[in-house]
Structure formats: C-alpha cells, structure tokens
Design a protein around this nucleic acid. Sequence first.
DNA 1: ATCCTACCCCTTGCATACTAGTGGGTCAAG
DNA 2: CTTGACCCACTAGTATGCAAGGGGTAGGAT
Lengths: 239, 239
Amino acid sequence: MAKQPLIIMRPESKGLSYDRPAASQIFGFIRDAIISMELLPGQMISETALAQQFGVSRTPVREALIQLSNIGFVEVLPQRGTYVSKFSMEKILEARFIREALEVAVVTQLATNPDEAVRSEAVDACEKIIADQKTAAADDDALAFQNLDDNFHQTLAGFTQYPRVATFIEAEKAHMDRVRNLSLHVSGQYKRVLSQHSAIIKAIKAGSAEKSAAAMSVHLKDVYNILEVIPQEHPEYFV
Amino acid sequence: MAKQPLIIMRPESKGLSYDRPAASQIFGFIRDAIISMELLPGQMISETALAQQFGVSRTPVREALIQLSNIGFVEVLPQRGTYVSKFSMEKILEARFIREALEVAVVTQLATNPDEAVRSEAVDACEKIIADQKTAAADDDALAFQNLDDNFHQTLAGFTQYPRVATFIEAEKAHMDRVRNLSLHVSGQYKRVLSQHSAIIKAIKAGSAEKSAAAMSVHLKDVYNILEVIPQEHPEYFV
DNA sequence: ATCCTACCCCTTGCATACTAGTGGGTCAAG
DNA sequence: CTTGACCCACTAGTATGCAAGGGGTAGGAT
C-alpha cells in the first residue's frame, strides 16, 4: 500500500463531545470519513496524527482503530502502520452475499408475517420513502437518493424486531457504498433502483415470500453493474 | 446484575505465547471461557484482576473486552464494571434468525453450484462428519458430538469462499451454544440432529435449493426445543 | 555504478499513572 | 430504629512513556 502520511480530516471535526467516550466518537468520525471516501483506500492512518487532530491521546484513537479493523475498514500491520482497507472484488462480493442473505430473510419474514397491520405499516413507510426517492431522482440529487436508499433498507430491517440485523445490514451495505461513492452517477441508476424497490414492496404487499425474496435478490445484484466499471476506472483503490 | 468479583479462570491459562499479540490471545481465552460457561452470565469481569491473572497490564485486557462487547459477549458499564452478558430470549432468537439467514444462503448457493465437483466434495466431507457424529452419539460423547456439529456447519460455510460468512455463523452459533452447554443431554437430541444433517446433505446432493434451504431451516429451528426448558431451569442466567 | 550494511526514524504493542464517576458502607442526626 | 449525607474503595476512561521491530536511506565497499 502506498504510504501517504497526510491526513485530510477537517480541523473542525476535532469537536468531541465531553459526555460520551472519546473512542466511540472517534470511531464514528473515521468510519464516516472512510465511507465518504475522505480517507482513501490504501492511505495510511497514523495513530499519533489522529490523536493530535482530535486533541486526545493515542489510547482512544487506538481503540477506535481496533474496532474499525474488526469491521474490515482498516488494516493494522504491527510495527508498520494502519491503513484504510483497499477494495477487493472478493470482499465486495462477500459483503454483497452476506447482505443478500440477511435482507432476503428480512423480507421473507415480513411477507409471511401473519399480522396484517405490521405488513401494511411497513409497506406504507416504504412507499413513502419511494415517493421521496422519486423526488430526489427528479432533482438529480444523488446524495439524497442514496440516503433514502439507506432508509429504505433500514426501515425494512427494523420490522424484524432484531436490532442487530439492521446493524449488520448497514455495515455490509457500507462496504458497497464506499465503492458506489466513487461513481454516484451511473446511467439509469435511479429508474432501476426505484422499480426494484417498488417490486419488493409489491411482493410484500401481496404476502408472497418467494416473490419478495426474489425481488430483493435482484435488487442486490444490481451492484454488479458498478463492479464492471469501477475497478478499471480506479485500479489504484483495489488490491 | 449480581456483583461477583471472583474470577474462576485457571492459573495455568496464564500461559500467553510471546509471538502473538496478547490482546488477541486474551480475547480467545475469555471468549472460550464464556462459551463453555466457566464465566457465568451476570458475573463481573474485572480488568485489573484479569490483567494480574494473565500477567499483563490492563491495556491488552481492555482491548480484548472491547472486542468481546462488540460481539455481545460482555457488557461494559462505564465507571461501574464489565459483566458477562446474560441470556435474553430476544438476543437468542436474534442470533438464531441471523444464523438461519446466513446458513440458508450457504446451502442454497452450494446446492445450485454448477460445478458438480465442488458439490460432491462438500457432500463427501459432510457425510464423513455425519459418520463421526454417529460414533460420538453411540458413545454418548456430547462434547465430541457438538464439536462435530460445529465442524459440519463450518465445512458447509467454507465452500462459499467467503471467509467472513463462516466467521459470522460461528459467532452467532456461539450465542446459542452457550445456552446449549447448560444442558448437553436433551432427550433424543442425537437422533434428531443426525437426521436433520442427513436431510440437508441429501438435498444438496440432489441439487435442490428449495429443499436444502428448507432442511437447514428446520434444523436451525431445533433450538426451540431447548428454549422451552432452559429459561425455567436457569432463570438466574436470563435478564 | 551497484550492492550491501548499518543506522535511524517511525510504527504499533504494552506498561504505568492519573482522572472522574459510581456505589456501598459508615456514622451521625432526627 | 430509621434516614440521610459523606467518604472511601473500586470502576472504566484517558494520558504518557517505554519497548520492539520494520523500512527507508545514506554511506561505504566492491
């Protein structure tokens, strides 16, 4: 990995709240910086430099980095340095596989939920998000569109009553979002995603586990479109 | 949670290897102790006491505990203490749900794998494990039987080529194994598990995604049998 | 010119010390 | 005897310093 000791985090992001553990806050800052590609794959992260930037000691920074390495966002090489994880086709496909497994289970459970009220509540919430996404698409607001996409999937997962499911989905999704943030404007993305989301909701509304699962599966295979382009466009970010 | 500052770890488990990070080794020790119920749910874990027992400082112990809290094995209450997580019906069902989602995806992928050689290799490996399990069942060796069960599921997951899938399955399984270790001898367990494992392999051999998924799903719902008994037998370990 | 070696700087891993906050136990007052 | 306040012991969170090892660079030898 290329050694780039320069850290690009904003000085104002030093603002740590005093009523929460510093390590936890730093974890969030760095995670968001990695997802949004402020910190680039392969870039070196210095514990010392980060500690200075946040105005704390190395200890909380170090604890944050350990957690980031647990979720695969950074790689700690003892005595050598800590680096933002590069992309690899294997890891992206792996994240996609895990996410599909979980999200298929989510919609399957939801579609077969005997409580009609829960189903219609979920459908209503998601249809509202889809409507907002149509607006975002009309405005060509890619960021808002992606945030709503997050919202859509988190809302669905929320109806399982298993909070860790939503957490896992978010974590796996983040790995792909990192790639996606390299090229927000893929032709026809809005229209495809919208129709896929609608298909999922339609299947849930119909109470069909098979169709829900199939629709979700199709939706999550959509990243393949991006993966055919990005690695050639940005080989420097891949291992 | 009850305060029990006594730590029951064996003195000989102090043996830490010098060629691996201490934090990682300590993590493994404590995790195994929790799964095997050496450390009981609700019991307090003192960073200082553990550090003394392992002959290291608080720092690596603390880093291990952070990772254990990430996988839900301990709960860190700031300025109050770190405690072994108690069981809760919600968390167990959640772990079961996540595990089923992943394992269903695993057998589905395997059953539909176009490469016949891979399928038969997986089937052979699993059938060997099932044979060993029959022996363990005949010997009434519950520990060996459970280790082989672990083996069975890890072997299946290994054929996805996605290492994190196996890791996740192992982690979620561990939450249930903790409960299972409270009562290793559930009547008829051996026979049921064996027939379920066989059914899974048979479906994979037949190349049927639906039957494989269904068989795995049935198998993983078997824990419900235990969950009807354990909470009443050991209410002190549940929240 | 090229290769090899020694050194130095920078990295993470670990140890130790200090801070702040919680809970329990004790003692005094009602 | 009960109740309340205060104090102390112990907790996790953070700061700092030291140890061990890898890598690049400079300089000397070939």
